[in-house]
Design a protein around this nucleic acid. Structure first.
Length: 184
DNA sequence: GCCAACGTTGGC
DNA sequence: GCCAACGTTGGC
């Protein structure tokens, strides 16, 4: 469970390493490269990548520590900014390293009553806004299933194809499509 | 709370 | 390097 830690102290987002996780070697772990970060596709005008980051909005004790950190908790941070640590999975950590400041990321609520996308953040990791409406996992899944047949934008969405990855990239098309769901 | 999916560990 | 055992994620 990748969990942002409620860290104060002007914590400016992505620290070098999270104390919570094992700890990251500064080695060349980048060599175990994430197979595809969007952009490899064709030259998109937009330089940035898009991301989806999971966190648990409901209380749960893990080794005696409450891992609860929902979007409301992010909003409540000083500067509405948190330090996203506690990510253990190598691939997820590689994605964290690949992020650049100010790229956009969805805040996804996992392991809870209603899983889904709650809002938008920008890397460093700061609250940007709530989604105009909560986008439930079930709805995303419906589109994903349909798009597998039609070749629509969510056909390869990592949320479904890389089930347990807590920090994941989105293509421009995926990102735009999900934003368009707000208006529905 | 259950449990499927899947990542990690460690013996060989 | 294989693979079984084990641990974690996260939907339901």
């Amino acid at each position: 469970m990748p969990r942002p830690r409620k860290r104060l102290a002007g914590a400016a987002g992505l620290d070098k390493k999270g104390p919570a996780g094992k700890h990251v070697k500064t080695k060349n772990t980048e060599s175990s490269s994430p197979q595809k970060i969007p952009a490899s596709k064709n030259c998109e005008k937009n330089t940035g990548s898009y991301w989806l980051m999971k966190s648990e909005p409901e209380s749960r004790l893990e080794k005696g520590v409450d891992v609860k950190f929902g979007i409301e908790d992010l909003k409540a941070q000083p500067k509405q900014t948190a330090c996203w640590d506690g990510v253990r999975n190598y691939q997820a950590r590689n994605f964290l390293r690949a992020m650049k400041v100010d790229e956009e990321a969805f805040f996804y609520h996992s392991n809870c009553k209603e899983p889904g996308i709650a809002g938008l953040m920008k890397v460093d990791v700061q609250f940007v806004r709530m989604m105009k409406r909560f986008i439930p996992l079930a709805e995303l899944k419906t589109h994903h299933q349909a798009h597998k047949a039609t070749g629509g934008p969510l056909k390869n969405m990592a949320l479904f194809t890389r089930q347990r990855l807590s920090v994941q990239p989105l293509t421009q098309e995926e990102f735009d499509f999900i934003l368009s769901l707000e208006e529905k």
